[in-house]
Nucleic acid binder design. Sequence first.
DNA 1: TAGAATTGCTTGCAACAGAAACTATTTTGG
DNA 2: CCAAAATAGTTTCTGTTGCAAGCAATTCTA
Lengths: 161, 161
Amino acid sequence: MSDTEWLSEDEREAWLALVSIMFRLPGAVETQLRSEEDMSLAEYLVLAMLSEASDHRHRMSELAAATNTSQSRLSRIVARMEKAGLVTREGRLDDRRVVIAEITDAGIERIQQAAPAHVRHVRDIVFNRLSPEQVGQLVEIGHSLNRGPAEDVAKGLRSIA
Amino acid sequence: MSDTEWLSEDEREAWLALVSIMFRLPGAVETQLRSEEDMSLAEYLVLAMLSEASDHRHRMSELAAATNTSQSRLSRIVARMEKAGLVTREGRLDDRRVVIAEITDAGIERIQQAAPAHVRHVRDIVFNRLSPEQVGQLVEIGHSLNRGPAEDVAKGLRSIA
DNA sequence: TAGAATTGCTTGCAACAGAAACTATTTTGG
DNA sequence: CCAAAATAGTTTCTGTTGCAAGCAATTCTA
């Protein structure tokens, strides 16, 4: 129990970097979107997902997964957006548990109007500060983190090491 | 206006990786801390900062900066922790605007008790999935994001803060 | 050296998120 | 064929956060 494997100096620094990203970036992005475009990042992502879908539709659970939000949060977000006329919701006939959200023309206008400033801001606070190599590394790191329960591998490595 | 420089495919992927980190990691970490140790990550970080200080004290603004939280948020967090007996607050005599937080013995016990499971969990969801090279890259990426290219520093700091 | 600006911190208000409970539907196992 | 389990989504409850305003102490400046 007390033989915890503490973080190495590098890991500690990396962890603090991650914490900094977790705590600061969302605020920075949301502040711009909220003040200039009056929407949250989650709302933006929902609109982006839907506008990019070939039929402009997605089921709620897909949206939740794609935007990294819980179902309950997404439910409220989409309810707000529906009230604002940006999306519509419609139950599916062949499985009436499923709800399909579809972006409206107003929703498409909305995101087209919001996108330039949002992208510029993301570029300002992220990509203008990273080298192309770092961008590639970030992609890989993202894959590694999301990808697999490294549990099996990790457990094996740990017992070997 | 319309000559926005859109994200490249790589940048887009990297941005989605960052969004995933922003949205998912905090939840994962907070859930473990909340359920197993009954504290938030911010509280944990405050206790960690204080317990590592040579005199077990820090001023509020230092704590806010070190834990990447706003002053108002930190104020409430420390107020809660004080009520729980984990820290004490005390005005400073030579500048009575300043408030010094000091960790109590109970607070030290608390973090020593919480640390092993927390560190194990961070290792599970982060470092067991990253190669040593990736850990180093992450450190560099964190540095790059926090202090951006000189030309953008002012703008960037403002938007991040 | 008085008034204005700034700094450090706290708090009121409204909005929001997470967890758990809940409804409704579909699938599964005996 | 039906009861139990699983799935999809919503809602309620409780607590937290951000923003803006507020207050007190200090520094600047004319």
